[in-house]
Each structure stands twice: as C-alpha cells, then as structure tokens.
Design a protein around this nucleic acid. Structure first.
Length: 284
DNA sequence: ACGAGATCCTGTCAGC
DNA sequence: TGCTGACAGGATCTCG
C-alpha cells in the first residue's frame, strides 16, 4: 500500500537505474493497466527517460520522444503510475520473462527490462503528452504536498479546507483533493501523534489541534521517508529492499496491544470505511 | 454540495 | 488437512 513515503522511495531508487535509458519495446500483459487508451503508445518507442519523480502517490516518468530530441525540444511525454495497494517496480536483466503478477514490461535494451508488477491489479499507468497533464482532472484536483508547506502554512491550509466539514478527520486526511499523499497507515499514525480521535469531525478542530496535526503529518512522513517507507507484506522499493518504518508504528496493525503512552488497549474500528486503530484514552 | 457506502481484485490468514 | 469467509485498501461510482 504505497503512500507518499513509499512512492518517494521507489522514485529515488528507480531514477538512477532508468534515467537516460531508451524505451526499445513495450509489452502489455494486462490491458486494463493502461488507463489512457493506447493512442500514445507508439510515441514511447525510442523515447529517452529524462526524469523519475513523485507527486502525491503518483510515480511519474518523464520522457523525450525521438522527434523532440532531434528537434532539440523539451521532454514531451509522461508516464503516470498509480501503484494502489500492490504495485511495484523492478529492473530485471535484458531477457527476463514476465512473473506471475507482471502487468507491464518496458524493454530498455542493454539496461534491462522494467517490470510493473501488481498482484491485485488495481494499479494503473497513464501514457500522456506532457501538455495533457493540465487537462487531467485527477492531477488538477490534487491537494498540496504536505512536505512542501511550512508547518504553519499546512495548519492554515487544513483550517481552510476542513472548515464547515462534518465528515470525520480521518476521511478528510485520506481525501487526496484536500491533501496529497496521506493513506490509511500514515493517517492513523499522524492522528495518534496529534492526540486526535479518527472519528472527530474535521470542521470541529480548533487551530491549536490543527497545528499539532500538521506537525504530526509532516514528522511522520519525513521519518518514514528517512527509513525508506513501511513494508507491510510485500512492499519493496526498486532495489528490492524493504522499508523499516513499520517498526515505528504506534497504532497501525497493533489492535489489542498496549498504547505506548498510556498503557491502555488500542482499539480497532472502521472509520471512513477503513480499518482504523487508535487509543481511546490518548485520542479525543 | 456533501457524505457514506459499495465496488474493484487476489493473496493471506483465522477459524472450523 | 482442507475449506470458507473475512480482510486488506485508493479512488471512483452511486445513492440518499
């Protein structure tokens, strides 16, 4: 379940392996993994990868088509991947054949074959011209990056987008149009650190509590990036390494265990349709 | 306009 | 031992 820290880690580990390489061929093993239709696929052939980066939970691969390269124009193509729960990348040797869950293969010639694997098949890839990004509603509706704002600015942003909202704060944190990158794990962890009950109404939180929440979200995301993300079951980065932040979880996956702060039992419930663990004594 | 719930999908695990 | 059902969850869709 790659959230912001996991996608960031994947982008950082994948970039040195594929930047500068050309796409020689592409193989689609699961057609529904391509969300954009196939009209742009031919442009990918011969295109050179110029950048690998992240926005929200999207992994973005920027390319320069052969046509743009010969005309000395800027990179003009973009692959946008959403890994959803089980998407992963790995660069295999040049002749590697697909694995059980391989959905897409990008043949990079002597540099190897980039596999997009995804057991649960929720993940997808959009193939776009770079200038089509501005017309993509999903992209346009994304909220700000939590680590690109100061703590004060993030608190102010939360105050403004949560104002008047009756939905619970956890659902609001998971809403990518309000804030980008936070998923179920880091929402639970941030709410615990901030001492806020997941079911509290978003619009009911005062400025002091929102400031605490803003700090908790930023701290948790920074620490998780420092530890290369969290590995639940099968998450691996593009070097095949597991993250380590799962060892720091205070609540996620710890239902029934004792709260590290007050010693009371951690409770499990459903909030916003998601499995949620919290400490009823520390979070109000 | 907003919010809640169902939906997609397959691997894993608890319980019988 | 082997089967069944619950569960995991991001974004989208439908419905109230």
């Amino acid at each position: 379940m790659p959230e912001l820290p996991e996608v960031e880690t994947i982008a950082r580990t994948l970039a040195p392996q594929i930047t500068g390489q050309r796409v020689r061929a592409m193989r689609i093993l699961l057609p529904k993994a391509i969300h954009s239709g196939t009209r742009h696929l031919p442009w990918l052939l011969g295109a050179r990868i110029t950048r690998v980066f992240r926005r929200a939970k999207l992994l973005l691969v920027e390319l320069q088509s052969e046509e743009a390269e010969s005309a000395a124009r800027a990179p003009d193509l973009l692959l946008a991947f959403h890994l959803k729960m089980t998407g992963s990348f790995f660069v295999h040797p040049p002749k590697a054949e697909p694995l059980k869950h391989t959905r897409l293969i990008f043949d990079l010639g002597p540099a190897g074959r980039l596999f997009f694997d995804d057991a649960r098949t929720f993940g997808w890839c959009r193939v776009m011209r770079a200038d089509e990004l501005a017309d993509w509603p999903f992209w346009n509706n994304l909220g700000p990056e939590p680590l690109e704002l100061s703590r004060k600015a993030l608190a102010g942003h939360l105050a403004s987008v949560f104002a008047g909202r009756r939905k619970c704060v956890k659902a609001a944190l998971l809403d990518q149009t309000l804030l980008a990158g936070v998923g179920n794990i880091y929402a639970d962890e941030a709410l615990f650190r901030a001492g806020i009950a997941p079911a509290a109404q978003a619009g009911s939180l005062n400025r002091a509590r929102l400031t605490k929440l803003a700090g908790a979200v930023q701290d948790i995301l920074r620490q998780a990036i420092d530890e290369c993300g969290s590995s639940i079951r099968d998450y691996r980065d593009a070097d095949g390494n597991a993250g380590a932040f799962q060892n720091n979880f205070a609540v996620y996956g710890r239902k029934g265990e004792n709260c590290a702060v007050c010693g009371g039992a951690l409770m499990s419930c459903r909030v916003a349709g998601r499995g949620t663990v919290h400490c009823p004594r520390c979070q109000t």
